[in-house]
Each structure stands twice: as structure tokens, then as C-alpha cells.
Write a protein that binds this DNA or RNA. Structure first.
Length: 581
DNA sequence: GCAAGGTC
């Protein structure tokens, strides 16, 4: 019945049949009953009070039909969905549908964190029951997100859409993730606008030394780095200029390791590809999804940066021995020569492994050059993270003129190891060689430089993702969608990989902020997340009470801004052009 | 015409 969710039967013996099928994400979702669909004539308060219906999603209609038809004659249902909150909620979607058709069925939940023989066997031998608390936490999020989205979107659109440029009656949406995403862009914009540069002065010393028979220029920076008083700097400069006690006071050499990268999760992939190829995070996800669906890489939506002990990486390494460019490197890892084992990151979603290549694409004609570029990047990162750290010498030379110290430093790579194929941060040699310790030097080559402090740069996509992750806005699977949504709504634009708010994006947030409502700050969502966690952990049982607490808080905000609608409009009218008249 | 979270 559903072309993406085939049904398969496995016969264990004469009287045991296992029927296996799948779903594709959530099967059910909340919606407002029909009677609330008239935007202009439904009081927003009624949307808050509405009894939402949980129905089969149109996109899962055939999947649900399939579940209903196949479940009738079975004794047991075992739910094998992702072992995270959303997965538990989907398990209840399935359970509800099946229990309705087959009320006496016995229901179990398999707990596993990797699709490996060991994990699957263990899960099968220690089946649990589905956890309603985890699912309830998701129901809470779904109801709050939908109700807040509907009420504030209608409020904004009905009252202020005349101020959005271009298309008249454009939707001015509100969402508990999209607004804080916009907020980050606006905050940086304000920071840049209000930045007051400060002048400072510093000393730079350049010396030429004969090193290994060749003359080389070595740049020293002042240990004090900078001072904000010109005359004070001038005085020090003059003092050193006449100083005859200059000496190379120390040279230290230290062996250091440049760590190989941590295993790759979704956010890591998006950030690295944005930096490396200027690739939009949405495009990255489209390509990663395609590579996954074709069987070339593992599941691309994962928080995890640790390879579990039960996963055998060797077949994936050996597969890359077919890769024309990396075969040699893969062979050296396989033979043990360069094997270092995967670095352990800190994150584990207990649902999916880090992103890794599965098989070589063998020049599949269905792959476009950009797909191959992304695939190769994933391969390089993967091979690098199971390889060995690079080794280098770090040399530090200190020059001293009485009290004032100047430092030069450089690196000499001794063993490339993982850097041989993967070097996204362009770590390289910057040798300064050996200078005799105790040798005297003159202050010739000393300069005093004037500069000023710089404002922070506009947010790049990579920086925006980092901040969203830090504040818990969205998930690995949705961060790129919020970034794309604020652009689609006309709230922000991306130019040369820099995000800037549009006038409507900026002033809409300001209009709320003027009345003390910080809808662009991540706190509203973070507060919700904390309560979701309490529900998920079973600490709080009365889910509706928590849902109402959050809804009522925002209902009050909506009442107040509805009362101040005229003032908000006046403010927007002052700063924006209306498309009316 | 609203959200965010799954997903092919």
C-alpha cells in the first residue's frame, strides 16, 4: 500500500511468522479542526483553547493503511523506532493505529543505538515497553508550537503584512525556532551598528637572521600586544630604540600533536561544507540525503560524534581502497600503519552513528560533480578521524630589551599522518629555524603601529549554526530549515555568506522588544525544553498543566500586543514603507 | 495562508 514502506515476512518455523515493515517519520500530527480555518473571523483566544485533533498526516496516508491491514492476526508488536524522544512519539503513532485494529496485541519496544548484529540481537533479547513520558514530551512541543505558530502568525500577518515588501499579504510567520534564529542575526547586526572603534598602538619587531646558511625574516610580536595610550607607547618605543641590551633570552622547542578530527555529525558537516565550499546548509542536506538514499553514506541526520564499540569500521575503510585518490591512505590505515582509532567526541543521540561513508560510488553516472565533492569530503574526514594525529615541533623565540619582551613562534610538521589527505584548517609549516640563545640583537626593525578595534563580522552560516546549536534552537534535522525559513519569509538575507536582517525582519522584532517582549531571544524555547525534559523523565505527570502554563504565558503577551497594536503599527509605519495606497 | 519535528 505504501511504496516506500515494503512489508516482508520471515518464517522462523512452522508456526512463527515475523512481519516487518516501516514508517517514514511521524505518521500522525496535530491539526486545528476545520471551524478554526477562517483567519479573519476566528478570535485568536479561541485558537489557544481549541481541542486539537491528532490525525493521520496526508503524507503518511498509505503507510497508515498498510499498518491497519497487516496487523490483524498477530500476537505481538515490537516497535523498532529511533531511540530518542521523537522516535518514541512515532512509536505511539504506530501503536495507536495498530491497537485500534487489534486491541489484544501485546506491545514491546526494542532499544538499540546502532544497526549492528550485536545491538539488534541484544535489543531483541531484552525487549522493553514503550515509554509514554518520552512521547508526552513531544506531544507538549507539538501542541505549543502549533498554537503559538498559528496565533502569532495570524496576528502579525493580519495587522502588519502591508509592511512586508514585494508581495502584498505575504505571510509574516512566527515560530519558536524561526524567531530566535532571526534574533541571532538581528543581535549581531545591532552589535556591528553600535560598535565604537577604539584606537590602540602596538610594537612590531622584524629581524633577519642567518638560519641554516640562509637569511630569513622573523616577525616578533610584543608580549603586551597593545596599549590604548599613544604617548605611553611612544615612550616605550623610544626607550627600546636606544636600548643596547637586546638579547635572545630564550628558545624553546616543544613536540606537539595536531589532533585528528572528531567523527562527523550533521552540524559538523554543515559547518565544514559551508566554510570549505560555501555550500548552503540546505543544499548540503539535500545532497547528503541523496547520498544516503543511494546507499553511499550512513544516515545524515545525527547528533552523535562517537563511534560505538559495536560498530565494525574495517569494511568501510576497506571499501575506500577502491577510491582512486584515497586508496593508498586507506590501505595504510587498514594495514595498521596509520591506524589511530576514532577520536571520541562528546555527543551521542543513542539513535544514529556519526556520518561515515558506506560504499565507494564507483563513478555512478547518477552522481553530479557536487555530490562527488561532498562524498569525497565525508570520506576524507572519516579516514582522517580513524588515522593518527599529526606531530610537529613548536618553536618559540623570545627577544628581550630589559623589561619588554617580543615573541616569535613557528611550527615544523614532523609527521603528516591525517594531514596527508585532510586539512580543512590549512595547518602548515611556518618554520622559524634555530637562533642562538643569548645572542644580542639591536632594535633595528622596530616599528610602532596604530590600529583600531574592529566590529565583529556579520554572521556566516557556519557561525549561525554554531550559535543555534549552543542555544538549543532546532535540531540537527531542522537547523537548516529555520535558516532557510527566515530568508523565505523575507526576514533576513544572505549575501556572500553573511546574514543580515531585512527592514521588516529587524523592525518586527524591535516592535515587540519596545514593549519588553523579547520574542527573538532563545529563552522562551529553552524554558519549554526544560519542562519537556521533566516530562520525558517522568518527573512531572500532569502534561496538560505544563502545556497550559506555557500557552497562558504567551496568551498574555498576545493580549498585550493586541492592545498595543496601534502603537506597534505607528512604530512600523515610521520605519517601513507600506504597500497600501 | 500558521509551527517544528520526523522522513522519501
Amino acid at each position: 500500500y505504501s511504496k516506500f514502506n515494503p512489508v516482508m515476512n520471515f518464517y522462523r518455523n512452522d508456526n512463527e511468522i515475523y512481519t516487518v515493515t516501516s514508517v517514514s517519520g511521524h505518521v500522525k500530527g496535530y491539526k486545528f479542526p476545520e471551524k478554526y480555518s477562517d483567519w479573519a473571523n476566528t478570535p485568536l483566544d479561541e485558537l489557544f483553547d481549541a481541542q486539537l485533533e491528532k490525525d493521520i498526516l496526508p503524507s503518511s496516508k498509505f503507510t497508515a493503511t498498510s499498518l491497519k491491514r497487516i496487523c490483524k492476526d498477530y500476537d505481538e508488536l515490537i516497535l523498532w523506532l529511533d531511540c530518542d524522544r521523537e522516535g518514541e512519539n512515532i512509536a505511539f503513532d504506530v501503536l495507536d493505529i495498530i491497537q485500534n485494529e487489534n486491541p489484544s496485541i501485546d506491545i514491546y519496544r526494542a532499544k538499540f543505538s546502532a544497526v549492528t548484529p550485536k545491538d539488534v540481537t541484544n535489543a531483541m533479547n531484552s525487549l522493553e515497553r514503550p515509554n509514554k513520558n518520552l512521547s508526552n514530551a513531544v506531544n507538549m512541543r507539538q501542541e505549543i508550537d502549533l498554537k503559538l505558530g498559528a496565533t502569532f502568525t495570524r496576528f502579525q500577518t493580519l495587522n502588519f503584512s502591508k509592511y512586508s515588501p514585494g508581495i502584498r499579504n505575504q505571510v509574516l510567520s512566527y515560530g519558536p525556532c524561526q524567531f530566535p534564529t532571526l534574533g541571532l542575526v538581528v543581535d549581531r547586526f545591532k552589535e556591528i551598528n553600535s560598535f565604537v572603534p577604539e584606537q590602540f598602538w602596538s610594537l612590531k619587531l622584524t629581524k633577519r637572521f642567518k638560519i641554516d646558511g640562509k637569511m630569513k625574516t622573523v616577525k616578533f610580536h610584543w608580549k603586551k600586544e597593545r596599549i590604548y595610550d599613544e604617548q605611553e607607547c611612544e615612550a616605550i618605543f623610544e626607550e627600546i630604540k636606544n636600548n643596547k641590551n637586546g638579547v635572545i633570552s630564550s628558545i624553546t622547542k616543544e613536540k606537539k600533536f595536531r589532533r585528528r578530527p572528531e567523527p562527523l555529525n550533521t552540524i559538523g558537516l554543515q559547518k565544514l561544507l559551508s566554510r570549505e565550499f560555501n555550500l548552503d546548509s540546505k543544499v548540503t542536506m539535500e545532497i547528503a540525503e541523496k547520498l544516503y538514499n543511494m546507499g553511499y553514506i550512513s544516515y545524515p541526520r545525527t547528533e552523535t560524534t562517537i563511534f560505538s564499540k559495536t560498530i565494525n569500521l574495517r569494511p568501510y575503510i576497506q571499501e575506500q581502497m577502491k577510491h582512486p585518490e584515497y586508496s593508498e591512505f586507506a590501505e595504510k590505515i587498514n594495514s595498521g600503519e596509520l591506524w589511530g582509532g576514532p577520536v571520541k567526541g562528546k555527543l551521542d543521540d543513542k539513535a544514529h552513528p556519526p556520518i561515515h561513508p558506506v560504499k565507494y560510488h564507483s563513478d555512478d553516472p547518477k552522481l553530479e560533480p557536487l555530490h562527488v565533492k561532498v562524498y569525497d569530503f565525508i570520506v576524507k574526514h572519516f579516514l582522517a578521524c580513524v588515522s593518527k594525529d599529526a606531530v610537529y615541533n613548536h618553536t618559540k623565540i623570545t627577544a628581550k630589551f630589559d623589561e619588554e619582551e617580543f615573541i616569535a613562534s613557528g611550527n615544523e610538521i614532523l609527521e603528516q599522518n591525517y594531514l596527508e589527505i585532510y586539512n580543512p584548517y590549512k595547518f602548515s609549516d611556518s618554520m622559524i629555524g634555530d637562533v642562538e640563545e643569548g645572542r644580542s640583537i639591536t632594535p633595528a626593525g622596530l616599528k610602532m603601529e596604530e590600529s583600531s578595534t574592529q566590529p565583529p563580522p556579520f554572521l556566516s552560516e557556519s557561525a549561525l549554526i554554531t550559535l543555534m546549536d549552543k542555544h538549543g534552537i532546532g535540531t540537527d534535522a531542522t537547523i537548516h530549515e529555520h535558516i532557510s525559513k527566515i530568508q523565505m519569509r523575507g526576514y533576513a538575507i544572505k549575501e556572500f555568506n553573511m546574514f543580515k536582517p531585512t527592514p521588516i525582519g529587524y523592525h518586527l522584532l524591535e516592535a515587540y522588544s519596545n514593549f519588553g517582549f523579547e520574542l527573538g531571544k532563545p529563552e522562551i524555547r529553552a524554558d519549554m525544553e526544560r519542562d519537556m525534559k521533566k516530562i520525558a523523565e517522568g518527573e512531572v505527570k500532569d502534561v496538560q498543566k505544563i502545556v497550559d502554563k506555557h500557552l497562558n504565558k504567551m496568551r498574555k503577551v498576545l493580549h498585550e500586543v493586541e492592545n498595543k497594536k496601534d502603537k506597534m503599527e505607528k512604530y512600523l509605519g515610521k520605519h517601513l514603507v507600506s504597500t497600501e495606497n
